[in-house]
Design a protein around this nucleic acid. Structure first.
Lengths: 212, 212
DNA sequence: CGCTAACCTAGAACAAGTTTCAGACTTGAT
DNA sequence: ATCAAGTCTGAAACTTGTTCTAGGTTAGCG
């Protein structure tokens, strides 16, 4: 059985200061524990203790461990989007820029592999009850990719390509995190899937880059 | 904490008949419970009871719930590979054939969505301790795709494309299972990623299919 | 100030995955 | 047939996510 709707979860807005502070402490504790030992190390009792909040309260803010970790990911993603915006990628083709951006994100994740583990596992393990939050993460990721492409209104085809890139991104991360693929392999997969952007880009020349 | 190496797990070979039978009963019970209610419905105590085996014995055969479900997936995959082989896809281009095969597999999964849920969630949630088994599933999937392409020795580029297709396949399944994507969307994603095969196929004409 | 509803806390209780253990059963080798 | 080693069983215990409860606290409002 998994957590269902809580009476009324604090919607991240219209919270008193103390509540906002609690929410922040919780997310911080979550990220900290995750950084230590990944998904398994984020134990609800410990999160509650670290953030000085009763277990019941923790569950009022985040109705399950997966909700908590997905929220943690939202938090980190926002941060990363900000960082990435500052130094936009320099590649000439859209495909290169996207690959560059994703590799930059990947390097950031490599610095905290346990945190990455916790967040990504939560994301793919999430069931229907977490759909809205997961969707939000997905939209944020899409925004990052479109940003790096420099597109404001993509064609449906391009959106498909972006979705496929996201699929690859998540799944490649998983295989890396569980030790079944090397960093080099992740890079290759990302670069490979990014070719789809060239294929669907009405602006660019139709030649697949041979190896020039 | 997660399950670690068992003393010596029965390696699926060199088992007595009774042991082979137990293993089979366990896998059968697992698939049956999964078909009912997905990942959550596969409860180790129930699996043990259904398959007439003590809980400790279940854990000797499969050191964790995830191991059990991944093994269940191996089992189902073998079955499906056999089925797919019988009627090879009819498309002209390799990309079409792969897409056709994957859509056929997808339709099979739609018939048992709960079972699909259990297997796929286990697969992506698996940690390092399950790597060998997950890898085996991955190899089997690769074999199915290469089969449908009609390739015996693919180039490294083609292997990359196949890996990306697998990534997309898993991740698209997840989004469908958690209700965040429609069946139609999964189809589009699969068709989109399959274009990569054309891009990396040294045989085929270099034109991306416009919409002819 | 004093009320009320909503919120928070500590802690017990429950559920399901996993581990452990003593004793009974099988198996393979002698 | 018999012994040792390895397996299986049933049951209890342990862990961690989740829920529940009884009472204390806070915030807004008259």
């Amino acid at each position: 059985m998994s957590a269902e709707a809580s009476p009324q979860r604090p919607a991240h807005s219209s919270l008193t200061e103390r509540q906002e502070a609690r929410r922040r402490r919780i997310l911080h504790a979550s990220a900290q524990l995750a950084s230590r030992g990944g998904f398994d190390a984020v134990q609800m009792r410990e999160v509650a203790e670290s953030s000085q909040v009763a277990l019941g309260t923790l569950y009022r803010y985040f109705p399950s461990k997966v909700h908590l970790l997905v929220a943690t990911m939202q938090d980190q993603l926002e941060h990363m989007h900000g960082t990435l915006r500052k130094k936009p990628p320099t590649g000439e083709r859209a495909a290169e820029r996207v690959a560059e951006t994703l590799m930059r994100a990947f390097r950031a994740l490599q610095r905290e592999p346990h945190l990455a583990d916790a967040m990504v596992r939560a994301l793919t393990f999430a069931d229907r009850s977490v759909s809205p939050e997961v969707d939000q993460v997905s939209r944020q990721t899409t925004a990052i990719i479109l940003d790096s492409m420099g597109l404001t209104d993509p064609t449906p085809e391009q959106l498909s390509a972006v979705r496929v890139i996201e699929h690859t991104w998540h799944s490649a991360l998983i295989t890396w995190l569980s030790g079944r693929a090397s960093i080099a392999q992740v890079r290759i997969d990302i670069e490979t899937v990014c070719r789809l952007i060239d294929v669907t880009d009405p602006e660019a020349p139709n030649e697949p880059p041979a190896h020039a």
